[in-house]
Nucleic acid binder design. Structure first.
Lengths: 289, 289
DNA sequence: AAGTGGTCTAGACCACTTT
DNA sequence: AAGTGGTCTAGACCACTTC
């Protein structure tokens, strides 16, 4: 939520809302590229003061500006963002600085660079992204996504625990979904999902069932809510009667319990999900590095 | 294992084994910084030939060279590597190119930069690194590492499955370790570990029990084998009688099964590990991004 | 041919740490 | 004060894609 971080010399509100720093726009690199002193009388003495309360490098500020444009939908998922040269001109910084900002956005998987083509906003429609958020891999053969069967989709008031995780108040509106995922015709995942009510008005079981493809792609396309990060807490639990029946296993069968909180821009939590995975013919893949 | 990749213009064997490219070493940036043209008569026409069979950017070659020095132990875990300027002089490239190489090594967690101090080889003695390889977090309180009780440590011939994962032949020598990890005085992890026999001559239960600290730190310090990456396959399983007894749970209790393969330099597997985690008061933490 | 991202260089200055 | 990594710039050229 923080807007432009204050920078000792590089930032100071000037006229243009797009311009980041009041730097000398001339091609000649002046003696003080960082911080155009508004007091031209003492050009050399001015910028030494103020040892910077909250220093933020230029490229971080550019990154924040680009992220803001992503959030507001100026550049939508799947679209190309302006070229590095264009962004450099827009923000009045060098191409190298824009480059470094985009480097970080690419590392965060918010955008993807394609040489010769441009830089594109990532989307949950891509195969690559799917595997980032569903790490269940079959023992044999390639990952394959079966159909999602929605059992339930209703609005209700958030229980205390869910509200806490979503950073809302107990009783605030949430949407609850329950569904079963089949992998090669075997019930493999039972999901219980809570979504921020405010962000998902009009979400129904029909919409979910009609949708072919990842649920997050639907959220992104129809509700303008893009999941960009998640944390998971994984445990082994025993199947209760309900889960056992829905997953066609014996009660007491060990299941992987995956509690996920997903975040959108600004690190705002928008989804809590509790998945129960049958791991007899699949496993949860993780890489440590 | 691949040595210096061939590069169209930037690479060609010259005298110095350290020098990467036969570029003009003069301080004056010549008209052709890429590929010093020996024929100054036709400056624009020369370098177009040879469309590069296996192109590899300079900084990748530098990265490989630095990694080689890490592997051979020229710079040991915990030590500082030469400054960017020194490395630039050594490899006869610009500081910016060295910088980019180190950037990637830092992203891979092979080195860590510390502003004002230098760049240091990472080590498993650091707290930060521990959490990269042991992701079990208590429900309440801070992560705390209890003592490791070694049940067994013996040499044996690799079973087929282990041999396959370690990329050796069935029957080749391996070291097998079994141990229990206590977290705040509760048995929480039961590990069964297989190590490449060739790399761990002289490893005994005594050495393991005397060692205070992470096992990987011992491997790194005493056996020159540094784990830099691992993959894990996670499942939920039921405790058998042996595991139940050692972990003080009822037989049949759901446990997290974590099958890990760890790799050292050159992506060579050196360890296979099967852990059984009690997840009643702890959970496996994972971040998706 | 033109436009995109990717690499490489050189030099300036800043921030941090140690001497 | 000196040395380290961190930021920023400007310009050149390369590789890939599209027109």
């Amino acid at each position: 939520m923080s807007s432009l971080p204050t920078s000792p010399s590089a930032t100071a509100a000037n006229g243009s809302p797009e311009s980041v720093a009041p730097r000398s726009a001339g091609t000649q690199p002046s003696a003080t590229p960082q911080g155009a002193s508004p007091a031209p009388a003492t050009p050399a003495a001015a910028p030494a003061s103020v040892p910077s309360p909250t220093f933020s490098p230029l490229y971080q500020q550019i990154k924040a500006l680009i992220m803001q444009s992503l959030q507001t939908g100026e550049w939508k998922p799947g679209e190309m963002i302006p070229s590095e040269m264009d962004l450099a001109a827009r923000y009045k910084v060098s191409q190298g600085t824009v480059r470094k900002a985009i480097d970080e956005l690419a590392a965060d998987n918010l955008v993807a660079r394609r040489q010769g083509k441009g830089t594109f906003v990532t989307t949950h429609h891509e195969d690559v992204v799917k595997f980032r958020f569903l790490r269940l891999v079959p023992d044999e053969g390639e990952p394959h996504y079966g159909a999602s069967r929605v059992l339930e989709c209703k609005r209700l008031r958030a229980p205390a625990e869910i509200a806490r995780l979503l950073d809302i108040r107990t009783g605030d509106s949430v949407v609850q979904i329950r569904r079963v995922l089949n992998f090669s015709n075997e019930a493999t995942v039972l999901d219980e999902i809570w979504l921020l009510g405010a962000n998902f008005k009009g979400l129904t079981a029909e919409k979910l069932n009609e949708w072919k493809g990842p649920m997050y792609a639907l959220f992104e396309a129809e509700f303008g809510t893009r999941m960009i990060r998640a944390t998971e807490k994984i445990r082994a639990v025993a199947a209760d009667n309900t889960a056992a029946e829905l997953l066609s296993v014996e009660p007491g069968t060990p299941l992987l319990s995956v509690e996920r909180v997903s975040f959108t821009y600004g690190d705002r939590p928008v989804e809590v999900r509790r998945g129960l995975y049958v791991t007899t013919r699949h496993y949860y893949q993780n890489d440590l590095s």
